[in-house]
Write a protein that binds this DNA or RNA. Structure first.
Ligand SMILES: [Mn+2]
Ligand SMILES: [Mn+2]
Ligand SMILES: [Zn+2]
Ligand SMILES: [Zn+2]
Lengths: 139, 139
DNA sequence: ATTGTAAACGAAAATCATTTTCGTTTATAG
DNA sequence: CTATAAACGAAAATGATTTTCGTTTACAAT
């Protein structure tokens, strides 16, 4: 967890109980969470927690690279712990919501293709893979 | 446009003036649109149009494969005309909002990687490429 | 330990994109 | 021309997310 506390300090974000607990919750699990789910879990430890606090903290965590977000059809926010710097993508189990990093990135190739096919300059890309994780496909 | 009218008929969707005009608007442009943008353009032709109608029609168009949607950070809905069946992806110009099809898909490879790395079964994927289109990078 | 200060927080309200409801109108097949 | 299912508009509802603002807290400097 010290790694995260360092990242907070570097951004002038204080090490508050709510932030610490959200980090603990997310570190304990490989799943993605909605702000509401985090809120429910936070309330098990704190009598008073505001939902805006949860939204704020998750947003900040994303900005400083502690968490990433996933895209779902309902267009709601979901976050999971991932602070790997290296270019990679994520596999999401549609049953248990586990998120796994996939060491793969074809961006150089895509960049070239876009250049050749369209004459356009690819700057960013977003790839998300969905399916059934090992455990879920076996049960 | 007959291709689209056929698709509507096959799904028991009537060829209504609003649907025809939305198709015309979207066919005229290579950009993606928010429901509100479509609404504004519709109002140039019809004195009475409800915004729910726009949302309904765009949703239906997506369901029957006339339009696709894009993902943006603000988590709002954006649609563009694309009824290509073949597996491919899209390049989006972040300046002019033009959408271009990119003939490329590495899913077979990804599937194998996910299987090897995680023992999981990849079923779907979503890839979106962003950057500057040919025209925008030249100006 | 005390204090100053910026950051964090909670409660309540606001925002605002999207959806639902429902009574009326329209497309189209027979 | 009718019948009927589909489509529509207006108005209201929904619900996730954000804003506001007065109070509290973390923490670094005294
Ligand atoms: Mn990549
Ligand atoms: Mn692909
Ligand atoms: Zn799973
Ligand atoms: Zn452009």
């Amino acid at each position: 967890m010290n790694k995260y506390y360092e990242m907070l300090k570097q951004q002038n974000l204080k090490k508050t109980p709510k932030r610490v607990e959200i980090l603990r919750i997310m570190k304990q699990s490989t799943s993605y969470f909605s702000p509401l789910e985090i809120w429910d879990l936070l309330k098990e430890k704190f009598q008073k927690v505001g939902l805006p606090t949860v939204y704020r903290i998750l947003q900040q965590f994303q900005e400083i690279g502690i968490v990433s977000s996933i895209q779902k059809d309902n267009n709601q926010l979901y976050y999971f712990l991932c602070s790997i710097r290296q270019d990679h993508h994520h596999f999401i189990c549609r049953k248990c919501h586990k998120v796994s990093c996939v060491q793969y990135c074809d961006f150089d190739n895509i960049k070239q293709l876009v250049e050749d096919q369209l004459g356009s300059k690819a700057e960013t890309h977003f790839l998300q893979i969905e399916g059934l994780c090992k455990e879920c496909r076996e049960s």
